[in-house]
C-alpha cells in the first residue's frame, strides 16, 4: 500500500477541471480508432493526440509504430489500455496480414506500456531497467489511470515484459533493427533504428511540438542520450509524442526545452520564487508551437523543485 500510493507522486498528471460541475456528470468511454500513416516500406506510425492524458482522449497520447516482418508484425509501444492494445493489434493484422509476434516497450510510462495485455501470443521486450520500473510503479500507475480514464481502462492489467531487450543489432523476420539502451527520460529508454528505412524510433527521449514530460527524468542522462541519437545517421525520427520529424528539428527542440527548463528552474529557486510562481514563469516564444507547454512546466516544477531547493538553499540552524 505504501509503495502504491508513493508512486503516484511522479506518476501522472491530473488535469484541473475547468468546469467543475461538468466534470461531475456521468461520462462514458468511447471506442479507440487508432489510425496508421505509412512512413516507409512495411512501416506505419500511429499518432497519439498531442495533449495531456485525459478522459477525452482515452489516454491515447503516445505514438506507436507498426512494422511488417516475415515472422509477424512488430509493434513499438502498446498504448494506454487493453482496449487500445486490441485496436492496435487488429490494425497491425490488417496492415501486415499477420498477427503481432513481437512488441517493444520503449519505457515504463503507462501511455506507452499499458496495452501489452492485448498481445498474449507475442514476445514483449523491454530493457531490464524498464521491467524493474514497471514492477515498481505499475500498480500506482494503474490506480491513477483508472481514476482518470474510467471505462477506457476496462480489463487493463499491468503486464510485465516477457523478455529483455538490450543494446545491439537484431534481425527479426528479415527486418534488421538496431537497439539502443539509453536513459534520461526514465531509467531505461529504448530507441530503435529500422535499418531498411533509416527510421529512428526514439520513444520519449524525443518530443516534437509537444512539451517533454519529466516525472522520471535525469537532465544530464537525457542530454547525453540526445547527443547519441543526433549522431546516428537517420532519415526520419518517430518521436514519443508529436509528428514525424524529417529534419532533426525534434531532437534539437527537445534538447532546447530541457536546457531551458533546467536553467529556468534553477534560476527560479535562486531568485526566491515559490513553486506556484515558477510554474507561471514566461515560456519563451520559440516554444509557442509546443502543445501542453504550461502543463508540462507545471509538472516539471513539481518533479524538480523541492530537490533544487534542498541543493541550493543554505542550512540556517542556529
Amino acid at each position: 500500500m505504501i509503495g502504491r500510493r508513493g508512486v503516484l507522486l511522479g506518476a501522472l498528471a491530473v488535469p484541473l477541471a475547468a468546469a467543475p460541475f461538468a466534470a461531475m456528470a456521468q461520462q462514458f468511454a468511447g471506442t479507440y480508432a487508432p489510425e496508421a500513416t505509412p512512413i516507409g516500406e512495411g512501416l506505419w506510425m500511429v499518432r497519439g493526440a498531442d495533449e495531456a492524458l485525459g478522459f477525452a482522449n482515452g489516454g491515447a497520447i503516445a505514438n506507436s509504430v507498426i512494422m511488417a516482418s516475415d515472422a509477424g508484425a512488430i509493434v513499438v509501444d502498446s498504448g494506454p489500455s487493453l482496449r487500445f492494445g486490441e485496436a492496435l493489434a487488429a490494425l497491425a493484422r490488417r496492415l501486415t496480414g499477420r498477427d503481432v509476434a513481437r512488441v517493444y516497450i520503449t519505457h515504463l510510462h503507462p501511455d506507452h506500456s499499458f496495452g501489452s495485455g492485448a498481445f498474449p501470443a507475442a514476445e514483449i521486450l523491454a530493457l531490464p531497467e524498464t521491467r524493474a520500473e514497471i514492477e515498481r510503479d505499475g500498480s500506482g500507475f494503474s490506480d491513477a489511470m483508472y481514476r482518470m480514464l474510467h471505462g477506457w481502462m476496462a480489463g487493463t492489467e499491468v503486464v510485465l515484459p516477457t523478455a529483455a531487450a538490450g543494446e545491439g543489432a537484431v534481425v527479426f523476420g528479415g527486418r534488421s533493427l538496431r537497439l539502443m539502451a539509453l536513459a534520461g527520460h526514465s531509467e531505461g529508454d529504448l530507441a530503435i533504428l529500422d535499418d531498411a528505412t533509416g527510421t529512428l524510433i526514439a520513444g520519449d527521449l524525443v518530443f516534437h511540438d509537444r512539451a517533454p514530460a519529466t516525472p522520471h527524468a535525469d537532465f544530464a542522462l537525457w542530454q547525453a542520450a540526445l547527443d547519441r541519437l543526433a549522431a546516428i545517421p537517420h532519415r526520419q525520427c518517430v518521436p514519443g509524442h508529436g509528428p514525424l520529424c524529417r529534419d532533426g528539428a525534434a531532437i534539437a527542440q527537445t534538447r532546447d526545452w530541457l536546457t531551458w527548463l533546467e536553467t529556468a528552474l534553477r534560476e527560479a529557486v535562486a531568485g526566491g520564487l515559490d513553486m506556484g510562481e515558477a510554474a507561471n514563469l514566461p515560456i519563451p516564444a520559440r516554444f509557442s508551437r509546443m502543445a501542453a507547454a504550461r502543463y508540462e512546466l507545471t509538472r516539471s516544477v513539481s518533479h524538480f523543485y523541492p530537490r533544487l531547493e534542498a541543493a541550493l538553499f543554505p542550512r540556517i540552524e542556529s
Binding site: L8, V14, P15, L16, A52, R294, T298, S302
Partner: peptide, 9 residues
C-alpha cells in the same frame, strides 16, 4: 494562485 493541475497530491 493554484497550479493548472495537481501533479502530486
Amino acid at each position: 494562485a493554484l497550479p493548472v493541475l495537481t501533479e502530486n497530491q
